[in-house]
Design a protein around this nucleic acid. Structure first.
Lengths: 345, 345
DNA sequence: TTGTATGCGTTATCAA
DNA sequence: TTGATAACGCATACAA
């Protein structure tokens, strides 16, 4: 049978309350009694029951991480790691959870599983719509956003400055002499909740700033009705659309590194050299970007996780956040998939 | 204030016990009363408190995942995802945790954090030594291993057949005409607990089987005393040792994909072409292997996570496992870093 | 500083 | 099938 606090109390010759105090290190306990208790606990291999503690104290000592997209994705796994590294030392458990479609989200929030069993909720990479916002606002625990487009949402948030990042990307390509720049979107079902879809809108806006009209800043995407079996097929289809444009771009911004790499491969298969004939920049700087030697906009999901967790801790401890909503600057990583536009070399 | 089961009972006009029964779906409850309860619960946005449930029932409904190495690593993140996908629908939470060094492990098991607060423990990629084994055996909850070399450990385990895999790798290279094959180890501090270190031993054994003496099957590794600041430096150092061998290998097995890719880069920097002058095979088939077009031995950590979780569930439900310890067959993925030995083309 | 006693929200035992 | 009621293991007023 697992020992309880009562067993320790008996062995140490003190009351249960004293054991509780000694073990948690709060409240004042005489060094000698503390020692007795600690010894007794050690001897019995005793550990406090989190469930009982939580029930008694009203604190769950758990925070939920809700990601859009699976936990094994580069971004999410790194956010998790960052959160873990600051929350675990503080005594908090992490309850990871994920959602993919809008329907998932609705089901999730309708049943509010766990909510009520966690002290805070960190949500990552969501495209928060009004319905979700409404649900989220119902809950009385702190909600911290990571990479949430509508940065104004929730009690706190951390993201990267996507607009600034996009400006850097477009500016780079412009200064390399590219006058027609395409934006290639990921293929994703209509009801996805990923926040990366925001990037296409931002591109449109930034392209305008840089004097590119719609014809010189085409957006290449797949209709949601199309169905493809492989990433390769998707990339091939995208490339065929790019090649079909009357005003063919000489540079491409691609929504994610993974897509960018697939597109580059498809491009090369058609004899379009990268970067000689076409410059390509990706987004994220995941591991694969380094391997593929891809110019990209760096995101640091681990750092975001760390910051989000720190904000969470502050919120939980009731400290006022000086800057609840923060944006990390974007950084462009120059590698070998971008080059001066043809004729300018 | 959060509603309790009592509030629901009052609203539904039944007793707390009935609410509890109706909500959990166990025990027999009249359809009509169940409806009343469900409606009342919905109306109040009521959710059972996991902590209270656990305390009363003695079941934690939580399983711990303990990985060696961070949670954002390809292997671990995929195991987590696999575990989540089967345990979450079954109503279990996952408590992820990780350990890097032997010291971490000792600290962890000494204080048994969480153990006693989880119903089972899944440990991944560990090099389980006697000390750890002793600690592990003390605990009375099921322990399920994922990719644990000493497959005989624990209540159940799932891994890949590393010996079979190594045979496939060596056989491939042998049949391509390579008569000197090196094994390149990862650089890792002496007190790491990763299970991949086992691979070097297996290579030695398999090389012998294929008639390669020590001179024709050199193991290239860095001493634990060396310190390097970057993976690039490590790869360069390894390559310099390879080139310094009297009997230079024409093929290499590298402990992990990441190392293999770094080594290939370092090799190419020295004018050694891959695969023309040197064939290279990696281990894992992580995302990066595909990008780098690396021949490698595939591991499927997601599948392992799924299987481990299913075994966990069985164990938790008290069902006897027909085959507690399973080994998945290894599969070699042929890509473009291997080729016929020179002169045989 | 320490001990006593109550309550946290649920499950489970026992009657009804 | 349903309703009381006693645990479950701990934290925390309150008293001493």
């Amino acid at each position: 049978m697992k020992p309880t606090i009562a067993d320790v109390a008996q062995l140490a010759g003190v009351s249960q309350a004293t054991v509780s105090r000694a073990l948690r290190g709060v409240d004042s306990v005489t060094p000698t009694t503390r020692q007795k208790v600690l010894q007794a606990a050690e001897q019995l291999h005793f550990t406090l029951s989190k469930h009982a503690s939580s029930l008694a104290s009203g604190k769950n000592m758990r925070v939920m991480l809700l990601t859009s997209g699976k936990l094994n994705q580069w971004f999410n796994a790194n956010v998790l790691q960052g959160i873990y590294d600051v929350l675990n030392p503080a005594g908090y458990d992490i309850a990871p959870s994920y959602i993919i479609t809008q329907q998932d989200a609705i089901d999730f929030f309708r049943h509010l599983p766990n909510v009520g069993n966690v002290d805070a909720m960190i949500i990552a990479s969501f495209q928060v719509d009004n319905q979700m916002r409404a649900y989220l606002q119902q809950t009385d625990i702190p909600v911290i956003g990571v990479d949430i487009p509508a940065q104004s949402y929730g009690n706190a948030s951390i993201g990267i400055d996507n607009v600034d990042g996009m400006r850097k990307a477009v500016q780079l390509l412009r200064s390399l002499g590219h006058s027609t720049i395409g934006f290639v979107t990921d293929y994703m079902p209509a009801d996805m909740v990923y926040s990366t879809v925001e990037r296409a809108h931002i591109f449109e806006q930034v392209a305008q700033e840089y004097g590119l009209d719609q014809r010189h800043a085409p957006i290449i995407s797949l209709s949601e009705y199309d169905h493809f079996t492989s990433n390769e097929q998707i990339a091939n289809e995208l490339v065929s659309r790019i090649l079909g444009l009357e005003q063919r771009p000489t540079a491409l911004c691609v929504q994610t590194d993974a897509s960018a790499i697939a597109v580059i491969k498809a491009l090369r298969n058609q004899g379009i050299r990268v970067p000689e004939d076409m410059s390509v920049v990706g987004f994220d700087d995941a591991d694969i970007a380094d391997i593929a030697d891809l110019t990209t906009l760096r995101q640091d999901p681990y750092a975001m996780g760390v910051i989000a967790a720190k904000k969470t801790l502050d919120l939980l401890h009731g400290v006022e956040l000086a800057h609840p909503h923060e944006l990390l600057p974007a950084r462009i990583i120059l590698r070998s998939t971008t080059q001066l536009a043809k004729g300018l070399a």
